[in-house]
Design a binder for these strands. Sequence first.
DNA 1: GATGAAATCCGAGTCAC
DNA 2: GTGACTCGGATTTCATC
Lengths: 154, 154
Amino acid sequence: MPNDLDRIDLKMLRLLQNNGRLSNAELAQLVDVSAATCHRRTQRLFDDGYIKSVRAMVEPRKVDRGALVMVGVVLDRSTPESFDAFEKAVAKLNFVLDCNLVAGDFDYFLKIRVGDMADFNRIHGTQLIALPGVRQTRTFFVMKEVVDNAPLNF
Amino acid sequence: MPNDLDRIDLKMLRLLQNNGRLSNAELAQLVDVSAATCHRRTQRLFDDGYIKSVRAMVEPRKVDRGALVMVGVVLDRSTPESFDAFEKAVAKLNFVLDCNLVAGDFDYFLKIRVGDMADFNRIHGTQLIALPGVRQTRTFFVMKEVVDNAPLNF
DNA sequence: GATGAAATCCGAGTCAC
DNA sequence: GTGACTCGGATTTCATC
């Protein structure tokens, strides 16, 4: 749908998404333009917000964050203030990777990474149920990560 | 837990996670070692698998993937073959960002990105319920992304 | 084993066109 | 958009601890 990106821009985006370490020279070769052009186009992809950031993907198990847990949350009340308070509080919890307001049986879904189940139980008891307006939570321990954070397809 | 990483390595990991475009020279200054040492250490973080990859984070809305959906899946049978078939099939679906086998009311949770709800309904009708062994799915449309793919805290 | 200084080399970034 | 130029950083070597 993005008609302000031509075929070359799209290819650059896909290549950089899969390998953010590509040098400008390498990328230029891969998309068959000069290094100068490639440099300007890449600049534009950043400046115009197509690329939000470039991140090193750290292996969770190597830094003691091998346990993944999904948590469904239901709030006491469905008022804007209630949602707002919850969201502000959850944004400060650095073990929360995703937090999404959803339509359905839950109000929010959280994706959480911790060291192990004991870690999670401690966090659940102290930090999650203590979040403002939480009526109940439902925990789904992840037993196997089949696909984790796959690159965007476009 | 990672006692093979010293304070400098951990700092490098955190910095690179937040900004994968840092030059070796910049990183060296930030962690206060020489460029040569920094280069060697960074190399090791890659070689030993601490950093899986470096990725440009593409803004989903800019490439027509602005709709996020969580889907809970229940399979017909809970046999290893059944799980295996499902996992192999789901890994081929490029709109699936996450797929996790969980303990609880569902067998799997999927995180899916598409252009809009119409896209999702088409995909749901043709590709999701057609996955091997699917008994039922429950869809949670994301109405607001509060936290999306936060960096790992360690 | 580790490091940092120095030397080389290559690419980023900028220029004119 | 390309090609050329310059300068700084990446990468290697090497001495040192």
